[in-house]
Amino acid sequence: MGILFSFAVVVAIVLLVFAGVSGAGLNYLFAVIIPYIALLIFIVGMVYRVVNWGRSAVPFKVPTTGGQQTSLPWIAANKLDNPSTSYGVIGRMLLEVLLFRSLFRNTKAELHSGSRLIYGSEKLLWLAALAFHYCFLVILIRHLRFFVVPVPAPIEFLEFMDSFFQVGAPLVYITNFLIIIALLYLLYRRIGMPQIKYISLPSDYFPLFLILAIAISGILMRYFDKVDVVGVKQIAMGLVSFRPTIPDGIGVIFYIHFALVCTLFAYFPFSKLVHMGGVFLSPTRNLANNNRMIRHVNPWDYPIKSRSYEDYENEFRDKMKKAGIPVEKE
């Protein structure tokens, strides 16, 4: 159900834009108004989510991370998986953010020959996730060539490297292939593996279908149903300089691609995709395991009303004496 629903939503967006642009001529809505709204939702939404996380207190440090913690000098500590210093935490965060360390350590459980439970490493997920994320980053940065004039050299260099093999015209990008393969594997996991399918929700399928649709529409636009690139850049530059213009004669495939990207941006803060910001605020990743060196005070500890025996005796001393109860102070 979740699969069909998510797929239907993506198809509906495509059809809506197609009808809106080629039927009703709503070019201005899809190329100017919606992009601005989507970007605004993206930025405000992400800031809101991150600030919200920042405001939640961390009652105690989470020491249950992989690796030997720092203890006695003759026990080798795992400084990256269980760091006790800030530098160690920075190292762990870099490994996590840049190389997906915890996904690398991910395991899978499978039943073999009936009832034998076997645990194994699950590196394909890590590989596909890494390939997908880096391709997405490269594609995102590469697209900046439409949004800036003059195009800075690093962006040009990235595009040069991405089309390094100089195949065909327009040049084929390496990331075009990699991102599609990675996305198809990530989708296969959720459709073809029963355990993963069981726990998958529409919110898992929808981003996959959406990003797949973005990639496919982009590839179609570049190699098959080509659009007027100069016109596309005029739209983009109009948007970033707040002087929106829409040249005539740009194929509807562009509007579909652009609207899907806007959908992704607007959907981002409401979805699981906020892990982009959330990864930096994971308590199991960003807290040093130094409980034995520095006391972590729960920020919501309130002053406890307590009464010592001394107070009690001071109040009731006379009565206690009359009743013959022994007192500490006469």
């Binding site: 970007l39 993206f42 930025i43 992400m46 800031v47 991150v50 600030v51 920042g54 405001r55 939640s56 207190a57 961390v58 900046l144 949004f147 800036v148 004039v149 983009a236 530059m237 970033v240 300089s241 707040f242 002087r243 910001g277 930096f280 605020l281 920020p299």
Partner: peptide, 27 residues
Amino acid sequence: MYNGGKIIIGLLIFIGFSTFPFLFTMG
């Protein structure tokens, strides 16, 4: 906000990246 300084720096970097084309063009 806990660790507000670090989080705000991170958010500023995020906003800088996501509005880069606007900042670069400056209208």
